[in-house]
Design a binder for these strands. Structure first.
Lengths: 209, 209
DNA sequence: GCAATATGAATGAACG
DNA sequence: CGTTCATTCATATTGC
């Protein structure tokens, strides 16, 4: 049922992203996009509209939520301090919940909390602040920059997308800052036979890690 | 088939609280706890683990759902707005769709588009701050504070809890703020014969209402 | 067994 | 940005 490209109810009460939309958003997120600018949001939403109804605010919220949630879930292991080996009856937990990103929103160790703008990085990689940290920087929080950063075949092929809707064209836009930041380009799906989207990342992993 | 205290197939697909766990959670809820903090969730889940497998997120979701649902059910036919004859009594909640049917309340935020960055605030009500609303206030959201707030015989007696599992001890913790907020204390179930939990509320209703 | 319901889980939207 | 609210999805439960 409703294996359709997205959800079902079609209630329209609130945005219900289609599978394609989610995929695009997810890829962008995985690519490192966390806090899209107004323009980016515009472009993204326009593009996504090819897969179904969507507003800019939906894109905005999507990133907000995805970012916030991922962070929450990330705070898992780490400080165990001492007592309470966390034993309990949960061990297998790692096996099951480990996958996905669903959640374990728990622990939100106090730790860094008041670092003003600079506390949005996990004790993870993110060790590369080579120069002045502008907002571009903080907007550039990759999960694991070293991995798929390369050329990323994000959109493998002309899936089963319904590319007949809008003829929106996306000009290439760069996010994050200068040249050392990846750039994500959208190519019009209507003008070309190319996959609905193509996301290209400039290798700049050397700046990371 | 499952009459057991909750656990059955052990499907592990999703958490299936045991009767004891539900009881504890319910009592806490009745006591007024609605939005436990991270620490509280931690403690509660640890405690509940004595009655069966449980994760923090389960506790989190439990409170979220319980709170939300109670609220919905409380939704007596409140506002009928205007148009829509609403016909009156009728459906009393639509009989069947007791738990669903969005029916009307649409709140429809002004489909204002929000200029990019300003998605966040709606021109909402926000008109009621009669006095200094501290975080204690908002943290102290009881359903009907004036009602059972008193001394509440929350844990009537040493139920049939299996108090032989963990020897976790819970130190008293306060939620919501200062002294005028209720405090919920857990007493070790292993060290004492007392009921697994005891919840004590400081009368502070005068601060409410 | 299947339909109706209760409720765990997920997530869009919004608040502070 | 961290939290919380509201709605929806998915599944276990219960009744017919």
């Amino acid at each position: 049922m409703e294996a359709l490209s997205g959800r079902v109810g079609v209630k329209c009460g609130r945005w219900n992203p289609t599978a394609e939309q989610v995929k695009v958003l997810t890829e962008l997120f995985r690519a490192g996009l966390r806090t899209p600018s107004t323009e980016q949001i515009q472009r993204i939403s326009t593009h996504l509209s090819a897969f179904g109804k969507v507003e800019s605010k939906n894109v905005f919220y999507w990133f907000q939520n995805h970012k916030a949630r991922e962070r929450h879930h990330h705070k898992k292991r780490r400080r165990v301090a001492s007592c309470s080996p966390d034993s309990s009856s949960n061990e297998e937990e790692s096996g099951r919940a480990a996958a996905a990103e669903p959640a374990d929103l728990v622990l939100q160790p106090p730790e860094s909390k008041r670092e003003a703008r600079g506390y949005n990085h996990h004790p993870r990689i993110m060790t590369c602040y080579v120069r002045e940290v502008t907002e571009q920087e903080e907007a550039t929080t990759w999960e694991r920059p070293t991995r798929e950063v390369e050329t990323l075949e994000l959109f493998p092929l002309k899936a089963a997308y319904d590319l007949e809707l809008e003829a929106d064209r996306f000009s290439r836009y760069v996010r994050g800052g200068e040249q050392q930041c990846r750039e994500i380009s959208f190519f019009d799906v209507a003008t070309g036979r190319d996959p609905p989207l193509e996301l290209r990342l400039c290798s700049f992993d050397r700046y990371l890690v």
